[in-house]
Design a protein around this nucleic acid. Structure first.
Lengths: 364, 364
DNA sequence: CCTAACTACGTTAGCGTTAACGTAAATGTT
DNA sequence: AACATTTACGTTAACGCTAACGTAGTTAGG
């Protein structure tokens, strides 16, 4: 008869049994015993380093496989004083942007035999720092952080750790160690200049709260560089929610519409821009006749909208790949360029007017 | 003068300097030396286990902080023969679904002091197995897999490893160890029954290729359970692309429209359903008058569309949280329920007709 | 006041692996 | 043939930490 007690987890009652003792996994010594050789020879055979005859290597590998031998990375890492773990910190998994950067990196790291320890910070610097501390205890091969805005202690800690660090997505000339990203302020200027050239004069920006996503703030600064702050043509902002979501674009747009006669709205990203189009439509407005809409990122979304969204394409996956390769080079004892700026591409779509007449397609 | 050579990484020329030697991080012994005590006492103080006077503990912790001491997890894990790493395998980061499940889990694990080693398999079982092998070398505290469809060796390997395993998102009565998910076939039946009750009779299903996402296939099976396979009312399928994207819904819909007079289309998820709405609109059709549209998941997207999408809400974040808690219980020596089914919620929106008349809002 | 039971430490012996060095046999060199 | 070099191993000593046990000094109990 099995004896158990009942425990409540969430709303579920679960039965609790005493745990069976776990069987110990085999070690290198067991393989050596079967192969009738020393553990050092087995170690060499498994790692593929020289010093073992071809015949013996094949034999040892066969035995190891048969015994289902799994090397102990903890022991290895302890002995060599580093691991093949790579720490990756992202603000969030929401949205395609970080997912794509991550994908680019992970593919590269995976092939090189590294595993990824991933964290999300929710844009919180303390969370990031706490995670870094924990991560450092694993003696990771490298650490990747999103952006360049960190807790002051983060910089000191990482600089003194001598572990390769990559800051990705944003740009700075003074990274902790290495950075690969795009120049968001410049991207903001590019968008704004296009808009200004088309005759727009009363811009707005819909985003998450200031300081939450500093890249978005940098783009806003770029837009302000172009439009200035004269009464009537200054850049209005709406920041209705922390959520990087369609609904934030929708709500922010309604807010802007209630405040000033605005002729173009820039959004934190394409998702929000789409929310904005929907909001304009719900108010009986036509895009781009009554309102110019500019997104950011160039997501898949734009491939299916009835009109092409005006946006800025960011090389997310490529950025991940480039960053990962730089970091691998760095891990292999190579010192690389401190900062790499990736190019962005302005996409003139149909949600802003072409030159000075409403000629494109329209929604609404 | 610095000597370097130039190396090409991607299209970038990078300068290569010889690496400076890395400084060794401090160890527990260093803390003990400063505190004038034994390393065992420091170990106890840092881990917060009993056997140290309050006075000494405070003093040791202060010294450890001042020395910026970071414990070595590899050494710890080697000594105790397990780690506080948790491996999480997902098919992809694309889409909100896995991101949200992951978020629910990570929050819970993080609080409990576990780090997440994450992998994406691209729905490939061999990739998953290879990753599991590598992960096992870390003696992880637990492993989480998405779904229940794995490489045959995966099951053997994990079952013999005695490490807690959670299969999440899908449902089975015979999990490797523990499972938390929804019953996708049942969800398909629910959707189909609602549709049938409303008078729909010529259904289609737009998805990714068969076998790629077996949950989607299970839902299709559920729909077929209801609609049968009579000529004219059988469930047509379009599977235009591997990509879980708006554009897949768009293209698949165009394909369906070209093939049969269909009156309702079910989609792999809400994103694709939205692509489908757009495709119908591009053909001059009105939703729901000319076509019923049913999504899946109940994403944020649905909050901003001018009409409410008919869909099925899945408890993604909650599933992650429940799964994580069960697993934590399991790690702490508790044997829990093998299978947990989470409830889904059908959402009657405006993209299917109400009863037998077109009364809802419309797009197009 | 003597013994039992605790408290607060310290000592010893691994955990499984690899770097560094040692050594015998095989091969090459003159 | 004598010596140098290379190849293919084996031996030893860490890597930094913790479980298990040992031992003084302190408190409690009758």
């Amino acid at each position: 008869m099995l004896v158990y007690r009942t425990v409540k987890i969430e709303e579920f009652d679960v039965k609790v049994f005493p745990m069976p003792r776990s069987t110990k996994p085999g070690k290198i010594e067991d393989v050596a015993a079967v192969a009738e050789t020393s553990i050092m020879t087995v170690s060499r055979a498994i790692r593929g380093v020289e010093g073992v005859s071809e015949k013996k290597r094949v034999e040892i590998l066969k035995i190891a496989r048969k015994l289902n031998y799994v090397p102990n990375s903890n022991a290895r890492s302890l002995a060599v004083a580093n691991s093949n773990l790579i720490g990756i910190s992202l603000p969030t998994f929401a949205g395609e942007v970080f997912a794509e950067i991550l994908d680019g990196m992970r593919g590269t790291f995976d092939q090189a035999g590294y595993s990824s320890v991933i964290d999300t910070t929710q844009y919180n610097k303390d969370t990031e720092l706490a995670w870094i501390r924990r991560l450092l205890s694993w003696q990771p091969a490298a650490i990747i952080l999103t952006g360049i805005d960190h807790h002051p202690e983060t910089r000191t800690l990482l600089a003194s750790s001598r572990i390769p660090v990559l800051e990705i997505w944003d740009h700075t000339n003074t990274p902790i160690d290495t950075s690969v990203g795009i120049d968001h302020r410049m991207a903001g200027r590019v968008m704004a200049e296009h808009a200004k050239a088309q005759g727009y004069g009363a811009p707005a920006f819909v985003s998450t709260p200031r300081g939450y996503d500093i890249r978005a703030d940098a783009r806003l600064a770029g837009i302000r560089d172009v439009f200035g702050d004269q009464e009537g043509s200054e850049v209005l902002t709406a920041r209705p929610s922390l959520e990087n979501a369609f609904s934030t674009g929708f709500d922010g747009t309604l807010d802007i519409l209630s405040r000033r006669d605005t002729d173009i709205i820039f959004y934190l990203n394409d998702n929000m821009a789409f929310g904005g189009i929907m909001a304009c439509q719900s108010k009986g407005m036509t895009v781009p006749r009554d309102m110019g809409i500019v997104g950011f990122n160039g997501l898949d979304l734009t491939r299916v909208l009835p009109v092409q969204l005006t946006t800025v394409k960011t090389p997310r996956r490529q950025m991940g790949v480039v960053g990962a390769r730089l970091l691998l080079a760095r891990i292999n004892g190579v010192k690389v360029a401190k900062s790499t700026v990736m190019p962005v591409q302005f996409v003139e779509g149909e949600t802003t007017v072409l030159q000075s007449g409403a000629q494109g397609g329209s929604i609404g």
